[in-house]
Amino acid sequence: METISAEIFTLTYGSMVRQLIADYEDVEEVNKQLDKMGFSIGQRLIDEFLAKSKTQRCSDFREAAEKVAKVGFRMFLNTTAAVTNWNAEGTECSLILEDNPLTDFVELPEALSQLKYSNLLCGVIRGALEMVNMDVECTFVRDVLQGDDVYEMRLKLLSSSPETYPFKDDD
């Protein structure tokens, strides 16, 4: 992968978020737009991910989540996420980011405490996984900008299409 100084990316993202806040004047709507924009990005980004990561087909959601966290974040953002807090069915987990390049130089003013600043990431993950036939829900549940100690995204598998993603009964 060609790399660039993340500063440019981070500042462009920040400037975009600021613009969205000015456009919508409603934090909830900004959160929604960020997720939506991320979704479109994810749909495109998956192509590059599959082409460049030379990854094999994932056998289940667990493996897919690991790939997102370990390969995806490394490839694009040069950071990694930890996958934890699985539910018993193996359909829900958390991605924990200790280091989030999007939020370098960022502090949230009081008035924007409900802003999910990095919400684009959730959209990207949702968009990318949708292209490999996994419908997921992805939301930030912890955010350093809102005073938590790490970033945590909750990832929940809603459905997956059986042709390309076979579930075995004994899994």
Partner: peptide
């Protein structure tokens, strides 16, 4: 000194 992939910026 932090780096990210060029495509991040392209996509954005």
């Amino acid at each position: 000194g932090r780096e990210c992939s060029e495509s991040c910026l392209d996509f954005l």
